[in-house]
Amino acid sequence: MQQEVQKYLRYDKLPHIWCPGCGNGIVLGALIRAFAKIGCNQDNTVIVSGIGCSSRASGYLDFNTLHTTHGRALAFATGIKFARPELKVFVLMGDGDAGAIGGNHLIHAARRNIDLTAIIFNNSIYGMTGGQYSPLTPQNSRASTASRGTVERPFDLAELAKAAGATYTARATTYHTSLLTKLICNGANHKGFSLIETVTACPVAYGRRNKMGSGYDMLMWQKEHGIPVEKAKKLTPEELKGNFIIGELYKTEAPEFTEAYQQLIERI
């Protein structure tokens, strides 16, 4: 297994740039385990990422990798997948990347139901630029641009994607790593637009300001606050408050964009 997993990394590009306690490496670990599980072919898979700490993950993966501009990863990926539908395409993004500057591309990729597997590293903050609040920062949290706590309400990207037309949405955390691996596999095997949000810790730019302790403490926070879907069903909204749901959130079938276009070509 070790070898099967390790072949997906560019060892010569390590060590990575992430801070001590950062959860991005855990997401990367789950990702390569998922690659091994689904038997991902490195020669017909493309990894696309945006801009941010998390998006540096593409540089450590031994595939054709494309590190794009902030927020635009899904649009670049759309070009790749549409041009060559036989390729498998994963898209790695931060919460700011996918939810703020790239929000428009997210809803339209979901609407088209284009067969991309989007993995969002949700660390609740703009990590790369040093801790400004993002659209996923919980209300009243502190950030370098919210010294008195954020006033804005946060997004639920899985709900957003579902409403926009995504056919697979799921959420896990860097504590629940085997769940995360499983969800990435399921998302990758699903035909259509799939979104897997990973709650991950940024102790340096988010945790510290919000008195959440070390990277370990933040993992324990994820353990306590991530409520499995089945359990959540039995809880009242009041009981769910302050927590978030993990597991497979939504799954349906719908025509996939590149296939539908191919059918159009064949009809002509």
């Binding site: 696309v48 635009r72 649009a75 070009g79 549409f82």
Partner: peptide, 15 residues
């Protein structure tokens, strides 16, 4: 923004 991005993605695959 997205158009230009998609064009680049497609070109990287050879189109």
């Amino acid at each position: 923004l997205g158009s230009m991005a998609a064009v680049i993605g497609a070109s990287l695959t050879g189109l």
